[in-house]
Amino acid sequence: MPRNIIDITDLTVAEIDQLIATAEDIVAHPAKYQDACAHKQLATLFFEPSTRTRLSFESAMLSLGGSTLGFSDAMNSSTSKGETVGDTIHTVSCYADIIAMRHPKEGAPYAAAQFSEVPIINAGDGGHNHPTQTLTDLLTIHREKNRLDNFTIGFCGDLKFGRTVHSLVNALSRYENIHFVLVSPLELKLPRYVKEEALKKRGIPYTQTTDLESVIPQLDILYMTRVQKERFFNEEEYLRLKDSYVLTPEKLASAKESLSILHPLPRVNEISVAVDKDPRAAYWKQVKNGKYIRMALILKLLGIEV
């Protein structure tokens, strides 16, 4: 059975720490890795549009000396003819050594893993999980703070459908002494099962509020998210909630000097462009880190040691 990464909890804390160490080594010594995946092929199967994640996976594989194939829209695949996820994966696993897939339906990568003969990486399944974004976030936090424990992190925006939030809360709950501050409109609160499984069962403290400004001074990390139009069945509700939080230089006035601002991107207007110049903005560094951690993950799943 190939090793798959469907959920961030498929990796142990020790494995995550090892991936971060490998990514740091890739940053320091890129030439060492440039032919590590020669003659290996990564299939990127994107049944839903993406800029960063797909290009990041492809760039990661190319930087390892491998090659890529795939599609970036379900309409360009046999899915448009009614092919099931299982049949698509069965086919592609005959061509590729490893598959990264994004799908609008929750659990599609779990289904894919039942049919695949090669490792499957979940590159996002609906509003459910996005483990490689979580690895990106963890690497960014590690590079910003030089640790993955002992801090207060605020999550702000759409915590209900924000899959990156679910995965990151799950991942960080396994590290020591982290306080979670959950900032969202009442309609977009973190799902109960995430709070139960990741926080309550482990006795981890958290605060829930609708007011970002009242909690911003206590944060070491602020993780902003977009209210995602594609997750709403009702457009009126989306329009009512989409501008709930907009981070501006004025709102950051009371924040710590050492704050790090993360965002999985794309953003719409929840972080004002003026914030980009603030040295606390870490979201563009986050994009770069995404490539390095995906390189580390591809190496791990293919069993390649450098």
Binding site: G86, H103, K105, A108, A111
Partner: peptide, 14 residues
Amino acid sequence: KNPRCITVAEPQLD
């Protein structure tokens, strides 16, 4: 029963 779940879109899955 989750309308976003892949098993609703592809009921042949276990």
